[in-house]
Each structure stands twice: as structure tokens, then as C-alpha cells.
């Protein structure tokens, strides 16, 4: 459950950003997760509920106000995109084996799919 550690970091970042914008409540969070990022969306949602439901022992008292009521979580899953240097082209791998569909080479770079980012907040 490293998802728990990630959601604790998410809460910290969200509170930091919301406070910097003078917000008093967070309503919705948008997270971008790559399909190679090693997180399970369901485990992430459970960890999110745990982390947002608990009061942060290291947090400031006003965190509870920002996060005190249910917060919606939107997950944007980014599909994997690889790059084959031999063919100089991008491709979506068919499965866990990242073989170039044109030449079959395996040593492709992963261009997208490792994201783990907070990309949006809805606040008031």
C-alpha cells in the first residue's frame, strides 16, 4: 500500500496550493496517473478516503477545514507511450512487453505513462 504514502503527499500538496490561493475548502481533486506508475486506481481511491478522512497530525488546524468535507477524486489515467529509436516513432505497447510494432525491438524508451501528478483543484 504505497498508495497511502502517495495520498499523504497529495493531501500535503493540495492543502499547500489551496492555501496559497486563499481557498477555504477543497471540493474536488484531479490526479493524473500513468499506467506505468505502479499504482492501482482502486487502492488509490481507498487510500484517498483514509487520508482525507483522517486529521493530519502534522498539519495545521486549518487543514481540517480545507479537507473536512467529502472531496471528489477524478483520476485521469494516461496510457503508455513508448518511443522506438530505430524507427523514430512513437507507439502504444500492446501489453507489458514493450516491443515496437514495426521492427519488434524491445529497447524502447517510455515517453508517457509514468505520471503521478496533481493537475487540478476545485476550491471555494
Amino acid at each position: 500500500m504505497h498508495e497511502l504514502a502517495l495520498m499523504e503527499e497529495l493531501r500535503r500538496l493540495a492543502v499547500q496550493e489551496a492555501r496559497a490561493q486563499g481557498a477555504s475548502r477543497i471540493h474536488r481533486l484531479r490526479l493524473r496517473i500513468g499506467s506505468q506508475a505502479g499504482v492501482d486506481p482502486e487502492a488509490l481511491r481507498q487510500a484517498f478516503a483514509v487520508v482525507m478522512g483522517a486529521s493530519d497530525p502534522q498539519g495545521q488546524p486549518e487543514d481540517a477545514e480545507l479537507c473536512g468535507r467529502p472531496i471528489a477524486l477524478d483520476l485521469d489515467v494516461v496510457p503508455t507511450v513508448c518511443f522506438c529509436p530505430d524507427c523514430a516513432q512513437e507507439f502504444h505497447p500492446a501489453d507489458v512487453i514493450h516491443a515496437c510494432p514495426r521492427c519488434g525491438a524491445l529497447a524502447s524508451r517510455i515517453l508517457r505513462g509514468r505520471e503521478l501528478e496533481l493537475v487540478g483543484l476545485e476550491v471555494s
Binding site: E9, S24, H27, E117, L118, V119, L121, V123
Partner: peptide, 27 residues
Amino acid sequence: GATAATPIDAPEATRQLTLQRRLLERN
């Protein structure tokens, strides 16, 4: 009086913040 100005009955006007913060940035 705990919060500055949160209307209790009316739905709150919300605003969207666009961000790009990596969760592993600190690590």
C-alpha cells in the same frame, strides 16, 4: 465564526485551479 465566509444553504461558488505538481517531487 470558524470560517471566513462559507454560505451554509446556497451552493458554494467554486473555482478551478490548474496545477502540475508531481507527487514524488519531494522524494
